[in-house]
Design a binder for these strands. Structure first.
Length: 676
RNA sequence: GCCGGCAUGGCGCAACUGGUAGCGCACCCGACUUGUAAUCGGGCGGUUAGGGGUUCAAGUCCCCUUGCCGGCUCCA
């Protein structure tokens, strides 16, 4: 009888023979699934993820990890990345390996190859991967010494570099921790059915027991270049992105989700619904809003102004350009110059010999509004009685974003921030922040976003200004305010800008994507640089703290987020055309003109479709334009002084008295109802 | 900024290995008027992003510029 040890599964102690593996226990003994939806792919042993082949030691606490759990999916994707790498090296023996970690919804693997992969290459790689999967290769872990690893991987320069970085893998590159952990080095061998090692990779693991578990739920998605270890100073490798799921059905569902995101793409909807465009003549990242987009934007801005007014903000205005002196004072030219449009040099005068008689001035387009607001603060002496002093501006700013990052309305070179700067005394920070966070969340909810979490960015100990005490107090205050909101709070240690900590509000949209929306940022630096002061109750001069706060981020970006969130079907209060009135035949148009006039008198945006199109075509047009209300009138309606609704979802309500119809529409707009 | 791909009338697309631009929608004109997602007919519209080159001949091949797309880096 073999010697026994005791291990613990699901909180229960259990004797097992020495040499029992995690898989032997969980699958063979306890009958866990080896295949299919709930397949056990690895085990968590004493809190660490281990291969199923891991041999248990006495006292081990063992837990099954199934393929459909977050950890299980990551293992599946990581193993699939290995299969990809094997396929690449089969087809391109000179390809050198970078790193290949799992990422959200999938994985990637970086390769150094002479020529980038073509779409045909990718197709061929997918086929080759399927062959490897079907072959049922096993993943076998093997501990090696540094020297052994160097010998075996002599042909893999990137892997050798990672071996040298062992223990600092987290610093080495995003994902590199998958190759080398802090402890011992391991190599994973892929073993074919004949027992021969067909491929191997330096890897920390764990992995699936066999490639069979990958089934056919994977797909290669795209290729792109990526810098080795994420630095633009390093060579570029070819990155292949893929996705992997426990089943083909889940893969299909994922592909459908991507298609849904594509249908909602604000760049596509913006063109289809005639909202905005980016004429080449203007330049990259510079948008024009068309009338329909303009109406939406105006409705967004009007409501924002109204709410700011109600909440004690004062409205200021500042110019788009300024002499360089302002940005010298603010420090922007020291640490942000490369993000700014280059200066216009004006007013220089030369004498007849070409020598400078008058030196001239550099003018810059503004990348930020805050320095201007500081000048407003400084325009006269300030009293503690004025604080908190809340300045608001829809301020247009220009930033020279790198050409490769410009993206639709979400990353532009010219944008309008709904920017506010609030000047407070130190002892007002907490109450003002609490007020502010409530204000921000309430307003976002009014626009239809209601699923939030917060991120708290705290001091980077290597780079900051201001005293430790004020940082500590401000950070504690931000944290307290965030916690009091009851929302999930995600820490972002070291993520703060040098001049102060911040909270950012992340919002999830209708299909679960998260967007960074508002930021609330404390600033100890600018008040200092501008020498801002107020006179306190005791007669002393004190320095205010400044709070930066953009709620939409930028109007353009928020517009894009809402457009995608609603898939173009804006709630009635934001819809560019709120009502389209459609006569069944020409003789009924007068009736609809009367109704339209009454709606218009209530501020409703209404059109009567008097075009030559036939009735069903008019319905189709209004439907495609995502108009919330269609009002239809035929003989039945006119004779009763009524009108019929067709809503955006296709439902109908017939023969509604005109007064009732008007009341319903006006109410939906006034209350900013989410539907229709 | 870097790597790769792309660029044909307002939009979506077509034009074999280079042989001299075509379709649908939209738009304009006309006819028709029919109760819930496409009535019929006619017409306008492109020096194929811009510039340069190869060739007897370039939308198709080469170079540069601009813009777009996907990543990388960046997002104070």
């Amino acid at each position: 009888m073999p010697a026994q040890i005791t291990v613990s599964v699901d909180g229960a102690e259990r004797p097992v023979p020495i040499g029992t593996t995690a898989g032997g226990l969980l699958i063979d003994e306890l009958g866990g699934a080896a295949r299919g939806a709930g397949a056990i792919v690895v085990a968590r042993v004493d809190g660490e993820l281990r291969d199923l082949a891991h041999v248990l030691t006495a006292g081990a606490v063992v837990e099954a990890v199934t393929i459909d759990s977050p950890d299980g999916l990551a293992v599946l994707r990581h193993s699939t990345a290995h299969v990809l790498a094997q396929a690449v090296q089969q087809a391109h023996p000179d390809a050198r390996l970078g790193i290949g970690p799992p990422v959200r919804d999938g994985f990637y693997y970086d390769f150094d190859v002479a020529t980038p992969f073509t779409p045909e290459d990718v197709k061929a790689l997918e086929k080759a991967m399927q062959r490897i999967v079907n072959e049922g290769q096993t993943f076998v872990r093997r501990v090696v010494t540094d020297d052994q690893a160097r010998a075996e991987l002599a042909a893999e320069p990137y892997k050798l570099e990672l071996i040298g970085l062992k223990g600092n893998a987290a610093d080495a590159a995003e994902g590199a921790a998958n190759e080398v952990g802090a402890g011992e080095l391991t190599i994973y061998d892929n073993v074919g059915r004949d027992g021969q090692v067909v491929w191997k990779d330096l890897c920390r693991g764990p992995h699936l027991p066999t490639t069979k578990l990958i089934t056919n739920g994977f797909s290669l998605m795209r290729t792109a270049a990526a810098y080795w270890r994420g630095s633009e100073k390093n060579p570029q490798l070819q990155r292949v992105y893929g996705t992997a799921w426990p089943t083909k059905d889940e893969l299909r569902a994922y592909v459908d989700r991507l298609a849904e995101a594509e249908r909602r793409d604000h760049r596509k909807l913006g063109a289809e619904l005639d909202l905005f465009s980016f004429p080449d003549e203007i330049g990259s990242g510079l948008a024009v809003f068309h009338p329909r987009g303009g109406v939406i934007r105006k409705a967004m801005e009007d409501y924002s102004r109204q709410r700011h007014e109600e909440s004690g903000y004062e409205f200021v205005y500042s110019p788009h350009i300024t002499k360089s002196a302002l940005f010298e004072t603010s420090g922007h030219l020291d640490w942000y110059a490369e993000g700014m449009y280059p200066p216009m040099h004006l007013d220089a005068e030369l004498d007849a010999d070409g020598a400078v008689r008058k030196p001239g001035q550099d003018y810059y387009l503004k990348p930020m509004n805050c320095p201007f607001h500081c000048l407003v603060f400084r325009a006269r002496g300030r009293s503690y009685r004025e604080l908190p002093l809340r300045m608001f501006e829809f301020g247009s700013v220009y930033r020279y974003e790198k050409s490769g990052v410009v993206h639709g309305l979400t990353r532009v070179r010219g944008m309008t921030q709904d920017d506010a700067h609030i000047y407070v005394a130190v002892d007002q920070i907490e109450s003002e922040l609490a007020l502010l966070l409530t204000f921000v969340l309430d307003l976002l909810k009014d626009y239809g976003l209601d699923d939030f979490y917060l991120e708290l960015s705290t001091k980077n100990p290597d780079k900051y200004v201001g005293s430790d005490e004020v940082w500590q107090q401000a950070t504690d205050t931000l944290r307290k305010v965030a916690q009091d909101s009851g929302l999930e709070l995600v820490p972002d240690p070291g993520g703060a800008a040098f001049y102060g900590p911040k909270i950012s509000v992340q919002a999830r949209d209708a299909i679960g994507r998260t967007w960074q929306m508002s930021t609330i940022q404390l600033d100890f630096n600018l008040p200092e640089r501008f020498g801002l002061e107020y006179q306190a109750a005791d007669g002393t001069r004190q320095r205010p703290v400044m709070i930066h706060r953009a709620l939409f981020g930028s109007v353009e970006r928020f517009f894009a987020v809402l457009l995608e969130h609603y898939a173009g079907a804006f709630p009635a209060w934001l819809a560019p055309v709120q009502v389209v009135a459609i006569p069944v035949a020409d003789v009924f148009t007068d009736h609809l003109h009367d109704v339209a006039a009454r709606l218009r008198a209530q501020g409703i945006r209404v059109e009567v479709d008097t075009s030559d199109d036939r009735f069903p075509k008019k319905i189709r047009n209004a439907q495609k334009a995502k108009v919330p209300f269609m009002l239809i009138a035929g003989e039945d309606d006119v004779s009763k002084g009524a009108v019929s609704f067709r809503y955006r979802d296709g439902s109908q309500k017939n023969a509604v008295p005109v007064d009732d119809a008007i009341t319903e529409i006006v109410a939906a707009v006034r209350t900013r109802a989410a539907t229709p």
